[in-house]
Each structure stands twice: as C-alpha cells, then as structure tokens.
Amino acid sequence: MRLLVVEDELRIVDILKDVLESAGFTVDAVNTATGARNALSDIPYDAAILDLGLPDGDGLEVLKSARAQGLQIPILVLTARDAINDRVSGLDAGADDYLVKPFAIQELVSRIKALLRRPGGALGAVLEAGNLAFDTIGREVTISGNPVQLSRRELSILEILLRRFGRVVPKDVLEEKLYAFDQEPESNAVSVHVHHLRRKLKTQAASVEVHTVRGIGYLLNEQ
C-alpha cells in the first residue's frame, strides 16, 4: 500500500514516515508542489497526504489539477490555517478529508485508514478498529477473532460508526441510513439499537466503545 506525503516541513515528514511505515504503508515524500504533481502523475499511489502551504505554490492547486486529470485516490489535506475557510475550499477542490495542524499523528493514521476503507478504497472489505473487525461483504463482526451476533440494524449502525471512527455521527444520519424513505422510524428506535449494540460490544470485551452525545448523535472510539 503506497502513500504519497506532500509536506515541506522535514521534521513532520520524518514523523509521518515513521508512523505510517510502522502501520504497514510504503511512504514516498516530496516537499514541493512541482514534486507532488510529478509524483502523482508517475506513480499509482493508493492515497495522498497533502499540505496546503508549500514553498512553490498552493497545495489546493495541486489538488485541483490532480482531480482535473481524473485522479480518483483519496487525498487528505493538512492545513495550518484557520479551519472553516480552508475546509470549505479544500473540500470543494476535491479533498476527501482534512486535518488542521497541530494534529494528532494517530488521528491522521486512522483517518487515512478510514479513507482507504471507503467503498472502492484500497483497504477493501474489512473495517478494523482496536480488536474489532467488520467484514462488510460477509456482514460478519469479530472481536479478538470471536464472532459476535448482531442484528441487521445493529450491523448497519456499527458500519456507519466504523467508517467515521472517532467522529460524531448525527442521529438523523443514522436514521436516514437505517430506514428507507417510506419507513417512518420510531422515535427512539436508533437509541434502542445503539443500546443493544453497546451492551453486546461490552460483554464481548471490545476495545471500542459507543459514546452518546446527547442532542447530536453517537461516536465510536477506542477506549
């Protein structure tokens, strides 16, 4: 699995390489916009991490031209500037995710893994978090290798939470995904399913936990 890191700060490059390589990735690093363009057009990377502030140009331009040339791989944008405006323009320009500096390195690794697990992503069908593994094709969940019995809706909830691991998933998003348009969800249906899911994870000693954010939704996190 080959990643491209575009970052001009060499110390950050060192750390990213260390962490990503120990997570099993092959990492190439370039530190200019030109280098990034060349690397992206020459080598079929599985994903790229792109810093927006480059010495010879704006990372956003690299992103736009790569997308314009039909490059489909997940690209995660790093920015040191204030979030909202960059986030909007970054996502508009075709970024799949973004992180604001200073970010936690582990957060970056899990975001990259999440991007690669997306449908069509390079990591394929198995979603992993801690000791939990979710085979999205076989619809099977194992905790430390032991199968766990989950209902169809519990599986759907777990899949969505896994795909957005570490982030809050609003309750209405879960409701939308759980029920077709003609089905009116019972008012507390989602919370009941989450309650059951949480209990099952706990009894199987999963290292992940579903947190409730009252008024907003749920979040799956490693304990």
Binding site: E9, R11, I12, I15, L16, V19, A80, V100, K101, P102, F103, A104, I105
Partner: peptide
C-alpha cells in the same frame, strides 16, 4: 507556530 507544535506532538 502550528508547524513546530505538530512536530513536537508527533514526536
């Protein structure tokens, strides 16, 4: 300021 902070927290 944020870049060195990223370096430190990463390290």
């Amino acid at each position: 300021l944020r870049t060195p902070l990223t370096v430190i927290s990463g390290a």
